Each structure stands twice: as structure tokens, then as C-alpha cells.
Computed example of a mutant assay.
Amino acid sequence: MRVLIVEDGGSVRDAAVRALRSSGLAVDVANCWRHAELRLAVNEYDCLVLDRFLADGDSADRLHLLRRRGVAVPAMLLAAGDDVRDRVAGFEAGADDYVAKPVATAELVHRVRALCRRRGSIRPAVLRTGDLEFDVARRQVRRDRVLLSLTPKELAVLERLMVRHPTVVSRTELIEHCWDEMADPTSNVVDVVVARLRRKLGAPTVIATVRGAGYRLALTDGR
């Protein structure tokens, strides 16, 4: 899942980026709305995290314009104050969540993940395919009821494959949803993560390579 943070406060922004990336999310950053609009024009996001008041405008007003243009991506507004009128204005502008700063990074991660799950169709809390089970909220994966130890990036790739099962998922799609703008699309980062996943998930092989197309789960779930 990919998140855009629009925040001009260095320490607040950096802490949020570290926490979200550590949880396996891909994170892009903009420090003003001019940069944010450029990123929104070329990337698809699962969630927006917006500082309410930036030097180049009120994010509630900018969000309202996005909604009028048909941009439906879930959005969270962050604000230093906790004034009821500001919160109401934020929700009226189209925010899905409104959080007062400072906010604990652990809480921010859970709130952002909850918003990401709203993107598109509602997803189940636990993804199941064959003997593979992914508890999305707890970020825990079990195969044949055995708990596995996966890195945040491995979890992100596996989640995408399970959400899109039984469709083939291209390397480009995995890059766009599981990595941020710092990733080199010509590198072999996807292949490396998939290879590690195959080893950790064990036999029989869970992830099949579809030559020239990408990857898909090789397990069946009765569908």
C-alpha cells in the first residue's frame, strides 16, 4: 500500500515517514501542495496524510477541490489544535479522519492502515488462500497454522498478491503499491523480495512466476 504525506514540519514528518515505512507501507512525501499535486498526477495512492495548515494553503480547502475533481482516495487531516469547528470543517471538506498533533506514531500507523483498507472494495480482516492466512491488522502470516517471521516489505508484497489472487500481479504493480518513489523500477528488488518470500513460505511453492507477466499465488482456495 502506498501513502502520500503532505507535511512541512520536519521532525513530525520524518517520524511519521519512519513509522509508516517500518510497518511496510510505501511512503512518498511532499512539503507543499504544489509538490503534492505533481505526485497525485502521476501516482496512485491508498491514503493521503495531510497537514491541515501549510504555507501554501489550508489542506481542507485543497482536499475539497480534490473531491470535486472526483479524487476519492481516503484522506487524514493532521492539525496542531483540537478545535471542534476545525474538525467539522475538515470532515465537511471530505476528510475521512482528523487527528490532533502530536499523535503517537503507533496510533498513526493503525489509523493510516485502516484508511488504506477503505480504498476500493472492503477487504476482510483476515485474508485466506489455501493454507495461507494473513491477519491484516496484526500483520501476521501463518501457513498451515504456523506463524512465520516476515519483514515489512515481504508482508507488503504478499498482501498484494493475496488481495489480487488469482490474478497475475506484474512487477510494475508491485513496485507502484509496495515501494515509494525512491525505488528504481529497473532494479531487481521485486525479484529479491519474492525469492525470500518463497524460501520463508516453504514447500510446496506458494508464488508462481508467470513468464513475461509477473507473479501469482500458486495456492488454491476452493474458488
Rank of each mutant, 00 (worst) to 15 (best):
E181T: 07
D14K: 14
V194P: 09
Y45I: 04
R171F: 02
S11F: 15
A104K: 14
T151E: 11
G202A: 05
D61H: 11
D51M: 04
A80C: 05
D180C: 01
A156H: 06
L150I: 07
V194S: 10
L201K: 04
V193C: 09
Q140A: 13
L4Y: 00
D221M: 14
T172N: 10
R139C: 11
L127P: 03
A137Q: 13
A75P: 04
T209E: 14
S22F: 13
G70Q: 05
A79K: 02
P124V: 13
W179D: 00
V112T: 07
G130W: 08
L78A: 00
M1K: 09
V3A: 12
L77Y: 03
L197I: 04
C178K: 04
D180Y: 01
R87I: 03
G202K: 02
V189H: 13
M162V: 03
A213N: 14
V71Y: 08
E154P: 06
A30M: 01
E107P: 02
R199Q: 15
G10R: 14
L158Y: 08
R2G: 07
C47Q: 01
P102D: 06
L155D: 05
D221N: 15
E154D: 07
D82S: 07
E181S: 14
R160A: 13
R68D: 09
V103T: 10
R85S: 14
L63I: 07
D28W: 00
E133Y: 08
C32H: 10
D86E: 10
D14Y: 10
I207P: 08
G57P: 08
D135Q: 11
R85G: 07
R123D: 10
A55R: 14
A89C: 04
N188K: 13
V27F: 05
A80Q: 08
H165G: 07
V206D: 05
G212R: 13
V157L: 12
R2I: 08
V99D: 01
V168I: 15
A125Q: 14
V6T: 02
R113D: 02
R85W: 11
R145L: 12
I5N: 00
L4T: 01
V190Y: 06
T205L: 12
W179T: 00
E37G: 05
R52C: 07
H64Q: 15
